[in-house]
Design a protein around this nucleic acid. Sequence first.
DNA 1: CACCAGGCAAGTA
DNA 2: TACTTGCATGGT
Length: 217
Amino acid sequence: MRTADTLLAMFEAMRAALGPSDWWPGETPFEIAVGAILTQNTNWGNVEKAIGNLKSRGLLDAEAMYGLPPSELAELIRPAGYYNIKTKRLRNFLAFLGEEADFDITTLREWPLHSLRPRVLGISGIGPETADAILLYALEQPTFVVDAYTFRMLGRHGLADEDMDYHALRAVFMDALPEDVALYNEYHALLVRVGKDWCKKKAGLCESCPLGPFLDT
DNA sequence: CACCAGGCAAGTA
DNA sequence: TACTTGCATGGT
């Protein structure tokens, strides 16, 4: 079976079992971008607390957040963990927004993906997954988001192997699937939902998984 | 108690 | 270049 057919079959199986995902959580593009940085190696529940702290103070705004003393920002995002380094990462991102978009993230939607993505990746603290999450979910650009669940699930189903890095696995999807923001959006969302509920590091949950059991290891 | 969660950069050899 | 380590809270 061609990779494209397999990937589309997996997508349909997950969608049929779970229905629409309505991702990414967040009321504005800026909130989505902040969430993408705060959720690095962190449970989303912890991120929600940090976002709530910012929102209740009217700080889910790029210029307002950048004007906040770093120590105060750190205290507000503390529940999300790694709060010192994430303060730096947020401020690096905010500096970029100030410089390139006058603190209005939506203006970045006009940039072509091929030039915007390297610029976002150049921000210290924004790696490939965070960059693609911001580009896809906040800026609606057609880039596929790969995460730990993607590696695990595609690996178990024989479409990824150990020597594959982020870029290689991203290319598996983008070479096989049509360039479609809505498809990339929903596909990643479904992978995370299935990953959270079935595809654990150690789990015998595969029998009930929408993708069925994997035949390996 | 140990382990994990929607990573990334810096340090080491 | 290829590994390893630091970063930190909160839930299971």
